[in-house]
Amino acid sequence: MKNRGTRSIFVGACIAMASVLGLSACGAGDQGDDTAVTFAVGSPNLEITTAPYVAVPEQMGFWKDEGLDVDVQGTEGATASVQMLAGGRADIINGGTSSFFQEAARNPDIQVISLTGPNVWRVYVPEDSPIQSIEELKGKTVGAQSLSSASYLFGVAALESGGVDTETEVDWLPVGTGNQAAEALNSGHVEAYASYDGPAGVVGNLTTDGLRALPSELDNYNGLLGIATLKETIEQRPDVVEKFLIGLIKGAIFSATNPEAAIDLQFKQFPEQRPQGSWDEVLSQMMPVAEKRFVDGGVQTDGLPLGTLSAEDVQSSIQLMNEYDVITEEVSAEDVLAFDLNNAAWSQVDPAAVAEMAEEYNVE
């Protein structure tokens, strides 16, 4: 394994901050009200890609139907979300699993309760770029949401696995998301952008020629994005966690069935995000993003319930992260995974009924 001293120290410092904060005896939402849940999402602007697990459950009342009051808070990335969880300021978090597993190596209370299937993390270049492979990024500048985000960490893994030394052969530049990232690409300040399906689609719509993903070793791995909480939350508030996951599952089914409806609900939740123009013009921008993130992202593997992966599959992904120093500690998937409540939530959901609800939704 290569010695990635600078990056390891940076990531370790970020995670160590969470440890300094200390674990709270009670979750953020457990303040005498067992209906309150604080959900930290590793996306500062809660853009369109978060619709299945933010806007749709909230606007359709999926969490409210379960008796929950969910407070969604966007963060600068998975590391920031983990800090909130470890510090008792969030009950459940979303983000790239690199930060989850890194913290779990130090804190055995971290539990991963739901995971995506196919890889969503990629390195993108402008559509008309001459760059066709990861190796051709040598000597280039690569942008990422921030240098503490999972987008950066998985970007490192993608480049390292493609034969690029990410400390000596590329420059990294934090460029945020949305318009800021698009401007960095349009102006040539960065020649590539490390992100994940969805946010990259939004950025691509804002660039001159769109974006194209470069093939990488990460495409062969699953479970690189997910949901986590604390062991004590599972033990003390299992019904709350299960009900939260019911809302999440319904949101995923609804969004995959009717992406247009999910887009409409996103802009009802966040009207300031709606692009200018007619609804048809909005859809022409948003539908490619939605179809990629809502439909393709909802595919599961091995016939398991959405959100559940085999321990062997996850361990393989952990080994990839270890190999390229995305995480610097050894972690056992068996110790971190806790899918029982996700599977219990699935048993409470009628997928056909949710799909019918989505099909009957009328965009106003």
Rank of each mutant, 00 (worst) to 15 (best):
R4Y: 14
T6F: 12
R7Y: 15
I9R: 14
V11I: 10
A13V: 04
C14Q: 13
C14D: 12
L23C: 11
C26T: 12
G29H: 04
D34P: 06
A36G: 00
V41N: 13
L46K: 08
I48N: 04
P52Q: 11
V56M: 01
M60W: 07
D69C: 01
D69F: 02
G74S: 13
E76A: 15
G88D: 11
T97A: 07
S99D: 14
F101N: 07
Q102T: 07
E103W: 12
A105F: 12
T116A: 15
T116W: 12
G117L: 09
P118I: 06
W121K: 07
R122N: 15
V123P: 02
E136N: 03
E136L: 03
G139Q: 06
A150G: 15
L153P: 00
F154M: 13
L159F: 10
G163P: 10
W172A: 01
Q180D: 09
H189Q: 13
A192D: 07
Y193Q: 04
Y193C: 03
A200P: 08
T208Q: 15
D209M: 01
Y221W: 08
N222R: 13
L230F: 07
L230W: 13
K231Y: 02
I234H: 13
Q236F: 02
K243E: 05
L245V: 05
L245M: 05
I246W: 10
P259S: 11
W279V: 04
W279M: 04
V282K: 07
V282D: 09
Q285H: 05
V289E: 04
E291Y: 00
Q300S: 15
Q300W: 09
G303N: 08
G307A: 10
I318M: 11
L320T: 03
E323Q: 15
Y324M: 08
E329T: 05
A333D: 01
L337C: 08
D340L: 04
D350C: 04
V354S: 12
